[in-house]
Amino acid sequence: MEKDLNERQLDRLVRDWSDDLLGPDIDKQISDSLMDFVDNDDTGIDVDELIDSHIHHLAMEESMSRRHKWKIFISSVAAVSAVIFIVASIYLAENDNSARSRKETFTAENQVKEKSGISNSAKPAGIAVSCNQTPAQPNRKKCQAEKAKETKTASTEQNLIETIAEINAGLADMVDNANEGLNMINVSLLTENLFSDTGHLGGYERIRDEYSSRQHTEEMQNLNIIEANLINVLYEIRNLDIDLNFDNIKTEI
């Protein structure tokens, strides 16, 4: 009787739980396992309680497994959504920049055309100058040349700034170390050497401009003294009033 009851209870429990929670294979395995256990039981253990506990444990595991699956599913969906969102954002941002760039370039081109009197209708709409276009388009070379020119100009300006910085550093040393006479010669020599090395014509004028604009009064004063000195000397030579005789002079061999 005890055994029948247990068997019925077991059958019901297994059937009920297995219908809801477990698949048919597991259902059969659990059923067989439990039936073997019951058939061979001679220990006096409360089989009902054991079975209830066991099935409850299985149900808990299954429930947890389900929740875990849901968590994995939700996490996966969230991760995929995040990736899609990021990719979409980058794509849209690039498109926006590209469109803005094309618009600005096209606007600038239109302005140039308006100034030069060229009609915009001569060119199909939508063709904007960009260095990223195919080599077949003529504007690409022009754009690249302009960019190269801008880079070169920036490089030249940078070189000049660095040169001025070197001169200023040299002048600072001279002010500290040399007397006034040496200061003047060194200003002149430093300028000469720097710009003869670079072959920069008009460099001296640029230095004067830089000194002036940056209010380097001491350096400007030195350069002014050098120039004034030369002017005075040439005036003095002109007023010497001396006769010159080129007769009977030896020529350099």
Partner: peptide, 19 residues
């Protein structure tokens, strides 16, 4: 004594002005 050197670059610059 006071020494002054007028470099070619300075002369080129001064040609259009004081000299």
């Amino acid at each position: 004594f006071d020494y002054t050197y007028i470099s070619p670059w300075m002369l080129k610059s001064m040609r259009q002005k004081d000299l």
